[in-house]
Design a protein around this nucleic acid. Structure first.
Lengths: 141, 141
DNA sequence: GCATATATATCGTACTACGACATATATCAA
DNA sequence: TTGATATATGTCGTAGTACGATATATATGC
């Protein structure tokens, strides 16, 4: 379905712009929902990453950094804020004392549960639209 | 397919966490690509929004703000940076002198074209994975 | 032709990630 | 073991960007 010349059409730019707009709206929705619960967006995502972490080993500062695509020392700071706000407890790993294992507090569980329900509902609305945009872009190039 | 209780399972958190991770990777890819071209991520997205803008009327500061979901005066500042860097020209609208119409410079066209090609290629890779994650989440709740 | 609304602009502030650097613990080779 | 190097986390100052508060110019409606 791709045209022979590898030039871009107005429709290509428009489709990509629409994708960004759709993503932005989701991110904006998410940030607002988190803010209403008193959580900055990054802290919410950290909680989700910790809660959603699957694996034998517990979540650590470094693993969180990888999951959030931030530098390890940025993860340290983020966790510092979460601990200060009472959302996360941090204890030294028994087998490797350099590592800090992270656990959600009851307070975090409650808030995250509410937020997750809201988000899944929002995604139910968003997904069809997003899938269409992605299909359009896939068809191209 | 929803369970009777409206409780969330570990798999729900994990799926949502995976979605965020996937989105982050795309955003990170995009920011890196833009940075390589010397553009901060927000400036890249502004250029895309201007170029991808469809409609009879030209893009303005206010319309850009709406499209990027930022406050009008943040749009002013963003455009200020773009003009300073030679990516955008700003001229007063003839019919409404309050408005500033925005146009991409040749420099911006060249850079944005390269970035857009790269992005469409990346989306071709990303889309199937993202669509699967979205489908999983849709099935739920 | 005044009152109000709209569009854009300016300036100081706050938040957060980063770079540079530091410390503690592990690991590995000799 | 010991020492060298790597890994994990932590600290502090800096920079970038969006915002709030506020200001100005132009439109619009009565």
């Amino acid at each position: 379905m791709r045209r022979l010349e590898d030039e871009l059409t107005d429709a290509d730019y428009e489709a990509l712009s629409n994708l960004r707009y759709t993503l932005r709206r989701f991110i904006d929705f998410s940030a607002s929902a988190a803010q209403q619960e008193g959580l900055p967006a990054q802290q919410h995502q950290a909680l989700l990453a910790i809660r959603g972490h699957r694996g034998i080993e517990a979540m650590t500062i470094g693993a969180l950094a990888e999951r959030l695509l931030i530098a390890p020392h940025s993860s340290t700071e983020l966790v510092g804020r979460l601990v200060a706000a009472g959302y996360v407890s941090r204890t030294a790993d028994l087998t490797d004392k350099r590592k800090q294992t992270l656990t959600l507090t009851e307070k975090a569980d409650v808030v995250l549960k509410r937020l997750t329900k809201t988000h899944i509902a929002e995604i139910k609305e968003l997904a069809p639209r997003l899938i269409n945009i992605l299909r359009d872009l896939q068809r191209d190039l």
